[in-house]
């Protein structure tokens, strides 16, 4: 069985967020919820300043606190290492979200995609209401709703349950890369089987000294980061006193 993992090459990443927007799109993620996200930081004082960007997503930890704490096993591990959620079993206690050290789990506080439920019309007779638009297109929830997401998870999760990144398990099972990987224009995301000795993931992890988020917690995350967002050159110096 494969054990999926992702390497994120920060040097290639330009912080454009294509991953996050494509993820929204692929997984029908409602507004306010970010399966794919980032941690940014502006470092330094003018004029010695840079802005840094670390893409984030579910780490698909080996020892996942969210899985450990879930009372009903709604949050569970798949054989391929993916941390998966089953909203049918979710009682909405939010303990996984509370437990996740990485802030990647979100709760559906409301019925999702509310924007598209409105029946307000901007110009009477001249424009349509969001609801009318969705109906006319014959789509569910949103006009650009992706039904393929529904293969392994409700294509849109109901209110009252949590949701998070699934490494696009519905795509991976078909031999397709997770959408964020496909959509990354910088090729900063490398996906594959960490157990296979010749996978690109394995090769990269052997080449660099990868780091992971909050490693000291012992969760054994499977999203690895290599290189630096800004590998800037500077003239050699010994400083001075």
């Amino acid at each position: 069985m494969s054990r999926y993992a992702m390497v994120i090459d920060l040097q290639r990443c330009v912080g454009c967020g294509s991953c996050s927007i494509a993820c929204r799109n692929e997984n029908n993620v409602p507004d306010g919820i970010y399966w794919s996200n980032k941690i940014t930081e502006t470092v330094g004082t003018f004029p010695n300043v840079r802005h840094h960007y670390i893409p984030t997503l579910c780490n698909h930890c080996e020892y996942a606190p969210c899985v450990r704490g879930c009372p009903t096993k709604a949050m569970h591990k798949l054989d391929n290492g993916i941390t998966m959620h089953d909203p049918k079993k979710c009682i909405g206690c939010k303990y996984c979200e509370f437990n996740c050290p990485y802030g990647v789990i979100y709760f559906n506080w409301k019925e999702p995609h509310q924007f598209w439920k409105s029946n307000k019309v901007l110009l009477k007779g001249g424009t349509s209401s969001p609801q009318e638009e969705v109906e006319k297109i014959g789509a569910k929830k949103t006009p650009y709703f992706n039904p393929e997401r529904g293969a392994t998870l409700p294509a849109s999760r109901p209110k009252g349950v949590v949701e998070k990144c699934t490494f696009c398990d519905h795509r991976v099972r078909k031999g397709l890369l997770p959408r964020c990987v496909e959509a990354c224009p910088a090729n900063a995301r490398i996906f594959g089987d960490i157990k296979a000795p010749d996978s690109d993931v394995t090769k990269l992890l052997g080449k660099f000294r990868p780091f992971r988020l909050r490693e000291q917690l012992g969760t054994n995350p499977h999203v690895f980061y290599v290189r630096d967002f800004n590998p800037a050159q500077y003239r050699p110096t010994k400083g001075g006193v």
Binding site: C16, G17, S18, S20, I21, A22, R24, N25, V121, L122, L123, G125, G126, T127, S128, S129, P130, E132, E133, I137, T142, P143, Y144, A183, P185, A186, N187
Partner: peptide
């Protein structure tokens, strides 16, 4: 074959309910 973040927003434009749907 590469894209960019703004390209995805095209989906929300083409299906923008505020698009005018008829001459006025």
């Amino acid at each position: 074959g590469e894209g960019c973040p703004r390209s995805h927003l095209g989906l929300q434009q083409v299906y923008d309910p505020d698009r005018i749907k008829t001459p006025m």
